[in-house]
Structures are given as C-alpha cells and as structure tokens.
Amino acid sequence: MKKIYGSASEALDGLLFDGMTMAAGGFGLCGIPELLIAAIRDAGTKDITIASNNCGVDDFGLGILLKTRQIKKMISSYVGENAEFMRQYLSGELELEFNPQGTLAERMRAGGAGIAGFYTRTGVGTVIAEGKETKVFNGQEHILETGLVMDLAIVKAWKADPSGNLVFRKTARNFNAPAATCGKICVAEVEEIVPLGALDPDAIHLPGIYVHRIVQGPHEKRIEQRTTRKREPAL
C-alpha cells in the first residue's frame, strides 16, 4: 500500500467532508500537524468537530481554522491562549466540550483500542459530570467517559519509514500517539522519512498499522511563549 504522498493536500485528498470529526495531535504549538492544518484551511472543509488538547493561537495551529470559521465544535482541555476562541465561544458561534486533560487523552486511547467507555474519578462533583452515568467503586463515585472514534486523525512525527512506523521527538509525543489511534484514517506529517529497516523497532512510538498516509515537509515550529531572562553583565 502506498503511504507516502507528495504534499499535505494530496495526503488529505478524498478524506475531507463537511461535518466530519477529527482528532489533532500536539500540545500548544508543540508537535502540531501544521502542514495538514493549512491544507484543511485551503480545502474549505466546514462544520468540523475537532478533538485536541487546545486550539492553537489566533494565527497559527488550529487557530487558523477558527479564523476561517471552519470549526463547529471543539473537544478540548485548555483554550486560554486563543482570543478568537474565547470570542466565538462567548458569542455562541462555537460549541465547546471541556475535558480534563488526562480524560481527553484516555478517551482517544480508548477509542483507538476499541474500548467503548471507562470510569474515572476525575470530574466527579463538577460540571464535567453533568448528564453522565455514575457508579461507585471501592466506596468512591466515578463517572463514565466514552472512547472517541473520529473520522480522521492528523498528527506530527519526527521520523517515519515507508510502512508508517512513527517516532515522535521528545515533548511532541504528547497527544500525537493517542490522537493517531482514534482516527478511522490517520494522516501523519513528518520531518524525515527513512528507509525501511532504519528505525530501531524498540524506538518506534506508533506502529505503522495505525498510519494510512504520510507527508514530509518543512515545519515552522513556532514558539508559543518565548520566556527569557535579562542577560547578566559580565564580571
């Protein structure tokens, strides 16, 4: 099966449709599939429901899909870096389903593993628990969370081989692996494609069976918040 495509738009060809659901890897601006996000913007796909830890910033990452009003609903943990997100949500233009961060990661992992749901104590007694089934285990209340299965997963990896085996670099592992597994189709953008057999099997973070298409390209890797200290004068 051919998995390597020449561009992000080619890798997404035939996969996008209005009203679709999507899982996106990354954390803040770290390890985000920026090439695929830009291609989705250019395709003009509308009314998308996206499960992602956050929604980027106003002019980068998933934030560019907010700007073009292509996102209908976000399933997220943290949205504090995006002023447009706040504006659309408060004005009723954007639906939002808040998930605790660990719960969101586990919902993705569960969906990819074929697990329909799981019980967790996280969120008990808060608005997160409203309308959800509860059950007591060992004398403590738990809420039922459902696994996520999305139409498409878009992720960013450091290296891939032609079979789609992926290696994520450091913090970029974050949500990329669980997001990749919960998509019916997974498209990965990577920095480098190496020959088959070049990756140490013990170093592979995601087996190629989860990955259907790969695209290689340059990445901006923007820093979300650059924090430095003033240089001390030389003694």
Rank of each mutant, 00 (worst) to 15 (best):
K3T: 09
Y5T: 09
G6A: 15
S7G: 10
L12T: 00
L12Q: 00
L12F: 01
G14H: 09
L15Y: 08
L15T: 02
M22S: 10
A23P: 01
A24S: 13
G25T: 03
G25K: 01
G25L: 01
F27D: 02
F27C: 04
L29C: 04
L29K: 02
C30G: 09
C30A: 14
G31M: 06
I32N: 02
P33H: 01
E34C: 04
E34P: 02
L36D: 01
I37F: 03
I37H: 03
A38D: 12
A39W: 04
I40T: 04
D42I: 03
D42C: 03
K46F: 05
T49C: 11
N54F: 02
C55M: 13
G56N: 01
V57A: 07
V57E: 05
D58P: 02
D58Y: 04
L62N: 10
L66G: 01
T68P: 05
R69K: 15
Q70E: 09
Q70R: 09
I71L: 09
E81D: 13
N82D: 06
F85E: 02
R87C: 10
L90H: 13
L90R: 14
S91C: 11
E93M: 13
E95F: 11
E95S: 12
N99Y: 15
P100S: 06
P100H: 10
Q101N: 15
G102W: 06
T103F: 01
L104W: 01
R109Q: 11
G112H: 00
A116D: 15
Y119G: 08
R121Y: 05
G123E: 06
V124I: 07
G125W: 08
V127L: 13
I128E: 06
G131L: 10
T134Q: 15
E141I: 12
H142Y: 08
H142K: 01
I143P: 00
I143G: 00
E145T: 08
G147F: 03
V149G: 04
M150H: 03
V155W: 00
A157L: 08
A157K: 07
P162F: 11
G164F: 02
G164C: 04
N165W: 03
L166Y: 03
L166C: 06
L166G: 02
R169I: 12
K170A: 13
K170V: 07
T171W: 14
N174A: 15
A177Y: 03
A179S: 14
C182F: 07
C182I: 08
G183E: 01
K184L: 13
K184M: 14
C186G: 05
A188Y: 02
E189F: 06
V194P: 05
V194A: 06
L199S: 12
P201S: 10
A203L: 12
H205V: 04
H205Q: 11
G208Y: 06
H212A: 11
R213L: 04
R213S: 05
V215G: 07
V215Q: 05
V215M: 10
V215W: 08
V215N: 05
P218I: 06
E220Q: 15
E224K: 15
R226F: 14
T227Y: 14
T227Q: 13
T227P: 04
R229C: 08
K230W: 09
E232L: 13
P233Q: 09
L235C: 10
L235D: 14
